[in-house]
Nucleic acid binder design. Structure first.
Length: 483
RNA sequence: CGGGGCGUAGCACAGCCCGGUAGUGCGCUUGCUUUGGGAGCAAGAAGUCGUAGGUUCGAAUCCUAUCGCCCCGACCA
């Protein structure tokens, strides 16, 4: 829509300055605000409601694959970090330490968890004795702290909310199966619930989690052409089991190390949601996670009109709530036009306008946020029509984003071409590739693009030389500049 | 953590160069009129000029330090 601008006041144009747009939308829509400590974030009720919806959907998916929730402590003894060499090396620069308690210097400093692999490992070594105890499938909904030099609301903050799943298995093969299963769970959440298309794949050696055997991720493409890692799943092999002595007696009587797995997704998903669907009028929430799915804007001139409208609005709210719709009637003393813009900015997927004309015909004017399409819907048809519209919006958002992703995925075979893409429109660059950390680092240095993943879907791959090195490629890899 | 930019009312900004009683627009409060795409008029409230120190008779303005935010680089969910 070319006249988008006339609907909007006060929001920076998305194409003009993307990160400014991003920050403004978050703050004006009241999703979040800055905390007093550098890199911390206050998640406001509207943003938290969104997180709760994402939580509910993801939690349900976890429970479908037998994962149970638990809680583990925030503070972790320093010694725990020293047990897994790669792990400590990876996290050392980002740790926050508690060195005093009860007015005294502590004997052993305590780290504020950056992730819980170590403290989980400690518990699992005590809990697991027999193959009959396996697998252990636990998930934690918590906060973690990672000291960051450069922070952005939702995408990178020093403290963030997430879930971290931790499982222990009889074999690396079992662990691998679980690793992939959880990756698939994230893919489904992202695509089906957040309408955010992703590419699922394996991380390179260079990009994998500190202490992991293999790391998988889902990668989404934001509308500014940068990639966002939206969820990760790690096969830790026996690394943590050896460091924390997680052993079991197998059926053959032998003591064996477990293989462990961890997987995580954070409030970063909210950042992804904003950058995937938002437009120059503000946010666009997919109906499945929208804190408010439908907002009712009443319209009247005279008092008797107002009371007639109020009767219909009340009836509608009752009816929609009974159908499980997250609905809100906006009776504030503002003009309807003002409210339209306000709720569009906050991303509410459907608006229902109810005025004297609608009272007369016992219908409502239904307006979609994503394309502003309007239709008059008789009240008795709403029970059917509204869920249908939610479905259409959900699908429409996904398809629009998928089309964007497809249109911004460039297959190149030549490094000059690669550089051109990264210098221009950016997006995903798909190349034939053979694992090579040195080449990866050089490419990063020269183009700022990193290897996002080796997609699981290798459809269309034919043997040929790897980009940059010319070695025989083992598959497609996806490069992009990333958040 | 390096380079650049910016901190003045809830928000966006002017004033600073050249020191002399704190401004504009939006928002907010009250009243009346309005209300189908950001309403109008009238009256009103609101700012230790990021913070600390210094220069000066006098500092938003000049100097020093410090904190925060934004953008660009090195490290990361």
């Amino acid at each position: 829509m070319s006249d988008n601008a006339k609907f909007v006041e006060d929001i920076t144009d998305k194409d003009d300055d993307f990160s400014k747009w991003y920050n403004e939308v978050i703050r004006k829509a009241e999703l979040a605000d800055y905390g007093p400590v550098r890199g911390t974030m206050i998640i406001r009720p509207y943003g938290y409601a969104l997180w709760e919806n994402i939580q509910k959907l993801l939690d349900t998916r976890f429970k479908e694959v037998d994962v149970e929730n638990a809680y583990f402590p925030l503070l972790i003894p320093k010694s725990f970090f020293e047990r897994e060499a790669e792990h400590i090396e990876g996290f050392a620069p980002e740790l926050a330490w508690v060195t005093r308690g009860g007015g005294e210097e502590l004997e052993e400093p305590l780290a504020i968890r950056p992730t819980s692999e170590t403290i989980i490992g400690h518990a699992y070594s005590r809990w697991i004795q027999s193959y009959r105890d396996l697998p252990v499938l636990i998930n934690l909904w918590n906060n973690v702290v990672r000291w960051e030099k450069r922070t952005t609301l939702f995408l990178r903050t020093s403290e963030f909310l997430w879930q971290e799943g931790h499982s222990a298995h009889r074999s690396i093969e079992d662990a691998e199966e679980r690793t992939r299963m959880m990756l698939e769970t994230y893919r489904a959440l992202a695509e089906e619930d957040l309408a955010m298309p992703v590419v699922a794949g394996r991380k390179s050696e260079n990009e994998k989690f500190a202490g992991a055997l293999r790391t998988y991720s889902i990668e989404a493409l934001m509308s500014d052409g940068k990639a966002l890692q939206a969820g990760t799943s790690h096969n830790l092999g026996e690394n943590f089991a050896r460091s924390f002595d997680i052993q079991y007696s197998d059926t053959d009587g032998q003591r064996k190390y477990c293989a462990t797995v961890s997987w995580g997704a954070s409030t970063r998903l909210i950042g992804g949601l904003i950058m995937t669907h938002g437009d120059n009028a503000g946010l666009i929430m997919p109906p499945k996670v929208a804190p408010i799915q439908a907002v009712i804007v009443p319209i009247w001139r005279k008092e008797e009109e107002k009371s007639a409208v109020a009767v219909l609005v009340e009836q509608l709210v009752k009816r929609l709530k009974a159908n499980g719709v997250r609905v809100k009637a906006d009776w504030r003393e503002e003009t309807p036009g003002w409210k339209y813009n306000e709720w569009e900015m906050r991303g509410v997927p459907v608006r229902l306008e109810v005025g004297p004309r609608d009272v007369k015909t016992n219908s409502v004017m239904l307006v979609r946020r994503d394309n502003r399409a309007k239709e008059a819907v008789p009240v008795e048809a709403l029970d059917n029509r509204l869920p249908q519209v939610f479905g259409e919006v959900q699908k429409g958002l996904f398809e629009r984003a998928l089309k964007f992703q497809a249109g911004n995925t460039h297959e190149v075979s030549d490094y000059d071409e690669f550089k051109q893409v990264m210098a221009g429109q950016r997006g995903f660059v798909k190349v034939k590739w053979a694992e090579d950390t040195e080449a990866e680092l050089k490419i990063k240095e020269e183009t700022k693009a990193t290897l996002r993943c080796v997609p699981l879907d290798q459809a269309g791959f034919t043997p040929g030389p790897s980009l940059f090195t010319g070695k025989p490629a083992t598959g497609y890899a996806l490069f992009a500049r990333a958040y």
